[in-house]
Design a protein around this nucleic acid. Sequence first.
DNA 1: TTGTAGGCGTTATCAC
DNA 2: GTGATAACGCCTACAA
Lengths: 326, 326
Amino acid sequence: MTEIAKLTGVSQPTVSRVLNGNQAVNPEVRERVLACAREHNFQPNVIARSLAGSRTMLIGLVFTDISNSFFADLEKYLEQEAKKNGYSVILFNSDYDWNKEKECLDVMRRYRVDGLILVPVEENSERFRQEMQKLDIPAVAVTRRTEGMDCVYVDHIEAGGQVGRHLQELGCESYIFAGTAGDGKYEGFLDALIKAEPDCETRLTCIETKDPEKIRRILKSHFEKHTGRTGIFAYNDRRAIQIHGILQELGVEIPQRASLVGFDNTYTCGFLYPGLSSVSQPNQEMAVKAVQRLLWKIAHPDAQEAMDEAMQARLIVRGSSAVENR
Amino acid sequence: MTEIAKLTGVSQPTVSRVLNGNQAVNPEVRERVLACAREHNFQPNVIARSLAGSRTMLIGLVFTDISNSFFADLEKYLEQEAKKNGYSVILFNSDYDWNKEKECLDVMRRYRVDGLILVPVEENSERFRQEMQKLDIPAVAVTRRTEGMDCVYVDHIEAGGQVGRHLQELGCESYIFAGTAGDGKYEGFLDALIKAEPDCETRLTCIETKDPEKIRRILKSHFEKHTGRTGIFAYNDRRAIQIHGILQELGVEIPQRASLVGFDNTYTCGFLYPGLSSVSQPNQEMAVKAVQRLLWKIAHPDAQEAMDEAMQARLIVRGSSAVENR
DNA sequence: TTGTAGGCGTTATCAC
DNA sequence: GTGATAACGCCTACAA
């Protein structure tokens, strides 16, 4: 800037004013300065700007694992929305590790990011709450409901319910849930089933392991015992795709004997055969909402109430749980 | 820092020296300062540090599309390696759009990133070369070979060759390549085929479209006409998975009538049935190499020669192109 | 409308 | 060893 000031024969602050366009300057001077800046492809030093002003125009992103395509997708939309508002994103993975997450947060603090969007590892632990308090940076949690903190997420319980009702309509005789039993998806799923069949819990198996070999054995013995239709709900597409493959390998007909539903509606769902039914999360909307809320919090630092609004997921039915397939 | 200085009764620069640990300070003072810093959970302002010193400790990452799981995976390793060396990453997507890429680069310049790792949209265009020159930031291209610029990438031609030879060994009567004909993968694939069967080009079909319906029609008519074994090579797993599904839908036996090979070896490959053969890129090694090279360039700003080292891909054979499957 | 002065939180360069 | 003091590149008064 100083250089441009010299070249155009004005003072450095004037250059600043022209480039930021917020204050009145002589049109003639403005043109001269702009031309010079363009000519030299001047890019303002945002580092200096950050130091002088009070904003860094940085949004910190902390994911558990960006190589999960669901998060990768989300990050794209977050970045998009951030950029639209003049912000850039700085990104870290916590690897589902609380200590790494803590480290990430420290680094964010060092960078004096204006705001934080994160997928908390321990969304409701006390130490997480304390850490966030100590950090004192406007933050929004995504994907997970976080008590006492702004968050946007889809209602897993409700989504699980949708899946439960859907599989029930198909006339399943037994059910399998692949994932953690403590999950909201499980809860909603089970609740929906119980509502219509109070005794169904006896016909519901939960596969918690991730080991493909174990999953294979469990499924094999299950389908040897059960001849009727089984409704399977996997807590994410990755797991669902895995099960999809195992079922094919075992020669279990999809959807006739096994009706399968995944979660996240990743692009692969439509590519499989039969297509994988899956619960679609409103990714882009979540991203937009999270960024908007964050910007609002940045603008209103002493707002009290935390936003806690569940978004609706939508079940996309494909071949793997088609109602009729004859 | 100033505050800590006051609290401990030393000067601010001394605090700086203690915290950076590079200069000699009185051990007693050191302890006092460290304790105070810990107590207040002091996080140095890297923005100020960047402005004062000459390094931002930021590495800019420009991807074409991080929602592609191959890139997402790569970014994880890049970030990991960067962090290991004290760097943080700031991330942008170019969306395969040259103008957006240019914008990203400008923003990187504004942030005065110390170095740049990018997946260029137009790896060999003149305007890209000029832009990089103008930018004048140490940079390394990943994934794509880039004339005159440091780059780490896998040798697509060689990889295509591996696939060609593999499919040939299976005794295929015709071949399909799904992807852009100009690609290195295609080139190597074709070369390998021609080497053994000079006339094979007449039996090679190229599917360039991305439209699933069109792909479906082409495959359908192909397998109506050809009864022998067809070797199919898709330029990435995404496309391969799509074809995998279509083949199943059409009732074409894999691998007996259609032997399928993808590219990237994403996690889904092992989950499909039959498992999808795929070319595995050494993701982590590429990431490490890229970061290391970048750090080296940052340390040696006026090094002349560009590194241009191709890495080896490795074909992972699974059920979709199993040699025998009876 | 414009220039001058001071400061943002560090690092770097001096003397002491 | 340590404390002044001057940058770093910009923004925000304030004064002219």
